[in-house]
Amino acid sequence: MIAKETPGMLTPRMIKLVGIFGLLIPVLLISIFPLIVMISTSFKTSQEVYIPPPTFMPRAPTIQNYLDIWRVVPLGTYFWNSLLIGLGSTVASLVLAIPAAYALARYRFVGKSVYVLFLLGIQMFPPIVLILGLFRLIASLNMLDSLVTIVVLNAIFSLSFNTWMLMGYFMTIPPEIEEAAMMDGNSRVGAMVRMVMPLSWPGLVAVAIFSFMNGWNEFTLPLTFLQSQDKLPLTIGLFKFVTRFKVEWHQLMAASFLATLVVVVLFMLVQDQLTRGMVAVSEK
């Protein structure tokens, strides 16, 4: 027997929806609260930042901070350097991670399970633990103050995660597809490039995004290895607004918003592939 809906009566479906939204909306508000504060502060003057009580809506909104930050620090240079580090480390890491992950997904060899566990374990090493040894190594190679150094180190540090993720994704692809390709005359590498990689596009995008974000957000390595102002990335550049006796909140928030915008736009562009890639790996 189906219950007849009458106007004004809460159906089970409506109750479920109210429950879901009742839970999600507060979570959403809590999640975006820092973002709202950042955007709001970025449109305030330095004086208004300190006027109590703090307000979400600036009393006298101004875009001056967005104009000033380009003059106070070389923000364009910082953006460009971050982009180079992010893209460079992503590509370098993928070039190494793809064959490694493919081999782990397809071949059996002695010590494979130990190696896979090693890949997982190595991600627990924060770069800061190795920083002194790395500094001596890089100095001895005369590679201090070079963006290439940051790209290479970032790629190395994200390699284990990328390999692990891609291995999981490659395992979701039936090996029969490659076998068919090889029957048609492709080599193993050819089958990987022509069949596996196109089918792995969502997984590759997901890994590339994580890798790019690692490079984009990296702080310790550029701080330690870069010296020239014209080579610093955004993460270090934003720190210029945090000085010894004062934080220039209004400018810091404006610059942070612009820095966040890049990642947000990137996410929006590849959201579908990212979700599919993540789901595929988790299902495996």
């Binding site: 460009w80 350097n81 180079l84 580090i85 893209l87 460079g88 992503t90 590509v91 370098a92 993928l94 070039v95 100095a139 005369n142 590679m143 201090l144 103050d145 070079s146 963006l147 290439v148 150094t149 790209v151 490039v193 010296q227 020239s228 080579k231």
Partner: peptide, 27 residues
């Protein structure tokens, strides 16, 4: 040829980074 193409594309950001940063600040 295809292999070289892939490698060239993969190396482009590294080359760009290298151009932006002449390696080896003098100690």
């Amino acid at each position: 040829r295809n292999f070289l193409k892939v490698m060239a594309m993969a190396s482009a950001p590294l080359v760009l980074a290298a151009c932006a940063a002449p390696a080896g600040a003098p100690a």
